[in-house]
């Protein structure tokens, strides 16, 4: 907390870690912190965060989704910005929270205010802070999957590619149909496993055809799905969240790889 007080001019960012990053890939959270701090922000991580509520919202459980949204709003509304290393959780807060409170003007106003200052990590770095380059090196060919919510709800397409272009020794090779869903879809992948499998199989084929050594994306859900499929198929492709590469935190094993 003392760091905050010493630099009152710095943007105060609340990091919404996301439940998947919290449990499966803390490195992504630390990479986000590093990128934000490098860009001149003060980063705090409210302890009162769990999940954005998307699973409930997308399952038709509006009451629980609203409860969780209130929890997020209360925990984050005092920050200058809320940054999320996920297009889908970021999209939920930014695009869907206001609609959750139709008919509840007081909470809707708070949701709209939070929405206005909530950003996905890469979009925040580029579109808000104007970051044009990162100091990182990644000597591999990579291919980038455009996760659906980030792409279509938040317009994230060129931003990650612009930053990746500044990573030393990194060679970007686009896969075919990078904008087509990987089949994760939150609860979809367990409710319709066969369909999900078909979609991720096609995605895995496109990734392998690209002949890239590393797959990157901005959403851990999609990454777990694609990594799990590639590994089941025995493909020797490393899978990482884009924040790890941009932050230069790539000395730890890739997703789903042993220590």
């Amino acid at each position: 907390m003392s760091a905050t007080l010493s630099c009152p001019h710095k943007p105060r960012v609340g990091l919404f870690v996301t439940c998947l990053v919290d449990v499966f890939r803390p490195t992504v959270g630390f990479a986000a912190v590093k990128l934000l701090e490098d860009a001149g922000c003060t980063v705090e991580v409210p302890a009162a965060q769990t999940c954005c509520g998307q699973p409930a919202y997308n399952s038709g459980d509006r009451a629980d989704a609203r409860d969780l949204a209130r929890q997020v709003i209360a925990a984050f509304e005092d920050f200058d910005y809320v940054v999320v290393p996920s297009g889908s959780c970021g999209g939920t807060i930014k695009r869907h929270y206001p609609h959750l409170f139709d008919g509840d003007p007081a909470w809707q106003t708070r949701a709209e205010r939070l929405s206005a200052k909530t950003f996905e990590l890469v979009s925040f770095l580029t579109d808000v802070l104007g970051v044009e380059r990162v100091i990182a090196r990644y000597p591999d060919t990579v291919t980038y999957h455009d996760s659906c919510s980030g792409l279509r709800e938040l317009g994230i397409k060129s931003q990650p590619r612009r930053l990746l272009a500044t990573v030393a020794d990194l060679d970007l090779r686009e896969m075919a149909e990078s904008e087509v869903c990987c089949g994760f879809g939150g609860t979809f992948c367990v409710k319709y496993p066969e369909l999900s499998n078909r979609m991720v199989s096609e995605k895995a084929a496109h990734i392998q055809t690209s002949e890239a050594g590393t797959l990157l994306a901005g959403d851990l859900g999609c990454l777990l799905n694609m990594a799990g499929k590639l590994q089941r198929e025995g493909a020797a492709i490393k899978v990482r969240h884009i924040a790890e590469v941009l932050a230069g935190m790539t000395d730890i094993p890739a997703i789903g790889e042993p220590d």
Binding site: V17, D22, V23, P193, A227, G228, K229, G256
Partner: peptide
């Protein structure tokens, strides 16, 4: 209980302690 997932793909294991634990 996660057969829908693991029937078709592996589940990448978590890194260890949660982000919140490490951050605290």
């Amino acid at each position: 209980l996660a057969g829908g997932w693991t029937a078709w793909r592996d589940l990448p294991a978590p890194q260890g302690r949660t982000f919140q634990q490490q951050w605290a």
